[in-house]
């Protein structure tokens, strides 16, 4: 389906009022667009332009906006979390490849993957507090529960670095393994899981000093995590092997399930009812839908080129963003 026919379909849905926000947003990183998918019909209802090379997206601290990082235009684009309408563009956020708000909502941290620096902003007004240049492709971000420390994987140098948010000072920078990417803090706030994309395992790291406590074999190209939502289990995409592992983190982490998802599985999200896991397949230009109970792929949805970040709109409001609107990079708006 070409872009025009997608737009026509979206228009008809919006006009007829049948497009409900059972929507899912998928960032097509290689074609400067994002897809809006329908959970109920499992189809793409619209594909809209957005900046350049969008990779990841997050929810704002007040829960009202979805924020997309447009890496090549150095901008953030925000969408209304209920309606999907474009809210604003935040300029001069350099190379926001991966991004995250601290749990207390006071800090926004971005990993500039291509430009080799980590930026710490005050969330209020997106004022830059500190820019730390660090070699090795800053890749993914995690925070401690107290919002004092941010942890950043360095994919090229095989290290994990910790920075004090208030002072922006480096706390430690430790070797972890080959090509670390996804990183997540477990609810006990005492263990970090780090996915090693250059290996077939994850590392369990002590957040106090960066020491590796143990490791767990998962699948080749261990890449990114997503919580199942029970505070105990995490999904992990293994990009090279083409699988998603289910990890039980109680006591020593162990793999308790796996599902084959070809095409470089990457980012994930779970439907609000907790029944389905949606996974972007970077190379196949698709999103795979996995039944969580059976760990089987039940459907797939074609999207754009190199789909990366995926996000479930949790609200039930009507989607009104079905019409193509001005690209993020052109919709000049105040910070």
């Amino acid at each position: 389906m070409n872009r025009l026919s997608i737009a026509a379909l979206a228009f008809s849905l919006v006009v007829s009022g049948t497009a409900k926000a059972d929507s899912v947003i998928v960032l097509n990183s290689d074609e400067a667009s994002y897809s809006i998918l329908s959970r109920s019909t499992r189809t793409e209802v619209a594909r809209l332009p957005v900046g350049r090379e969008p990779h990841h997206l997050i929810v704002s601290p007040d829960g009202k906006e979805v924020i997309i990082g447009s890496t090549a235009t150095n901008e953030l684009l925000s969408l209304d979390i209920n309606t999907g309408e474009r809210k604003r563009v935040v300029k001069d956020i350099l190379d926001p490849y991966h991004l995250g708000f601290s749990p207390d909502g006071k800090w926004l941290v971005t990993a500039a993957y291509r430009l080799d620096h980590v930026d710490i902003y005050h969330s209020d007004g997106f004022r830059l507090a500190g820019r730390i240049f660090i070699d090795g492709l800053p890749s993914h971000i995690a925070f401690d529960a107290e919002s004092k420390t941010v942890f950043v994987t360095l994919q090229q140098s095989g290290r994990l670095a910790a920075f004090d948010l208030a002072t922006q000072a480096l706390k430690w920078n430790m070797p972890i393994g080959n090509a670390p990417a996804g990183v997540v803090m477990l609810p006990d706030d005492k263990r970090l899981l780090v996915a090693l994309t250059g290996e077939d395992r994850i590392a369990v790291v002590d957040p106090k000093d960066g020491s590796v406590k143990s490791s767990l074999q998962t699948g080749k190209g261990a890449h990114n995590f997503f919580p199942k939502g029970d505070g105990r289990h995490y999904f992990l995409s293994n990009r090279v092997e083409g699988t998603v592992s289910l990890i039980d983190t109680k006591d020593d982490p162990k793999v308790v399930g796996s599902v084959r998802i070809p095409g470089g599985p990457d980012c994930m999200d779970i439907t609000p009812d907790g029944k389905e896991l949606w996974v972007t397949q970077r190379f196949l230009r698709r999103v795979a839908i996995v039944d969580i109970d059976t760990l089987k792929v039940v459907a797939g949805i074609p999207v754009g080129k190199s789909p990366h970040g995926v996000f479930m709109m949790k609200s039930t409001a009507t989607v009104t963003s079905g019409l193509p609107v001005r690209a993020a990079s052109t919709a000049g708006s105040p910070r």
């Binding site: 492709l137 994309t197 080749k220 190209g221 090279v240 190379f283």
Partner: peptide, 17 residues
């Protein structure tokens, strides 16, 4: 996935993935 990815993975060239 058959020809290139295994080579990049084997030689630790995942930055070129």
């Amino acid at each position: 996935e058959t020809l290139v990815s295994p080579v990049l993975y084997h030689f630790g060239l995942m930055a070129w993935y």
